[in-house]
Write a protein that binds this DNA or RNA. Structure first.
Lengths: 159, 159
DNA sequence: GTTCTTGCAAACCCTTTGCACGTCT
DNA sequence: AGACGTGCAAAGGGTTTGCAAGAAC
């Protein structure tokens, strides 16, 4: 396991927009200003976000897009793999830019709720191995680990 | 990885009810007929189920419990670890008896939607290792693998 | 010009909650 | 008797949908 390298500040928005535009053209979807603006704004966010957080963020920055358009564009961005979706327990859907931190998984402290992102290359092997047992090719995976501090008092953010 | 051994038919309902009764007593919750009946009915189900499927199952078998009671009892059963909860993508909450198949994870075919349950002992080690990196003790985890048939036509349940 | 996309509001689904009544201790 | 659990229906939150107006092709 290596510490994850966050790519946020290196994201090339123009490249993302080009990839999105190509996807839209190939799939015969239309290239609209709302769709591109949504992708631009997502690239400004630091990590996970909900559809509603994106809606609020865009509205506080002068973009007037509806929730319906945000949901539908997030669906398209997920289809073309520019964005990934996470469903964490008890939470609404979380999204993030795929290029921000490829192939990471999540660890949650059940005491304080903090979330850690980690990369575990061994997991990729395990996933391939399991899929092969069933004659399938892995597409993606999601591992969530729930853990706690050995001594509750050490948990830095306990309630 | 070993093929999972399904324990459904070996579940000792009386033991489950005893464990539930002890839990209720310790936590100063009341031992009601609805709570015990819900546990009995869960033990009759073959695998994953939703709160609503349990509701329908109970009503078609003559038990008149409300959805509210089902939700609240599933919460208690989860707290005392007789039942585990899964949140699969895009789905409502799924529940199952913990003793049915301890420590398994899930593989989904993205072409046909079929689900496979598997046990991967190496994963336990990996989970411990990752948690230790952050000075935490693992409590539980959830791994979901999404995969597809190498040749689409081979997928036995493709749409 | 046609078809797709947008915005709005309503609908939707699953889950939780408030309240009056019933039950357990 | 008192506190808690139940059932019902209503509320709640997040997401999807139907439709009329507008934009892309």
């Amino acid at each position: 396991m290596t510490p994850p390298e966050v790519h946020t500040n290196h994201v090339d928005v123009e490249e993302l927009k080009n990839r999105f535009a190509s996807f839209l053209q190939e799939q015969r979807y239309r290239n609209t200003s709302e769709r591109m603006r949504i992708l631009e704004r997502i690239a400004e966010l630091p990590g996970h976000f909900t559809a509603d957080q994106l809606y609020v963020y865009m509205h506080t920055h002068g973009d007037k897009v509806s929730r319906a358009t945000i949901y539908s564009t997030l669906e398209l961005l997920t289809q073309c793999n520019l964005v990934i979706r996470h469903r964490f327990e008890g939470d609404s859907m979380k999204y993030e830019l795929t290029s921000r931190l490829p192939n990471h998984d999540h660890l949650f402290c059940v005491d304080c709720g903090r979330m850690v992102e980690f990369c575990a290359p061994q997991l990729q092997e395990l996933v391939r191995y399991v899929a092969r047992q069933y004659a399938l090719s892995p597409v993606r995976h999601s591992l969530q680990i729930f853990a706690r501090c050995p001594n509750f008092v050490e948990c830095p953010h306990r309630p």
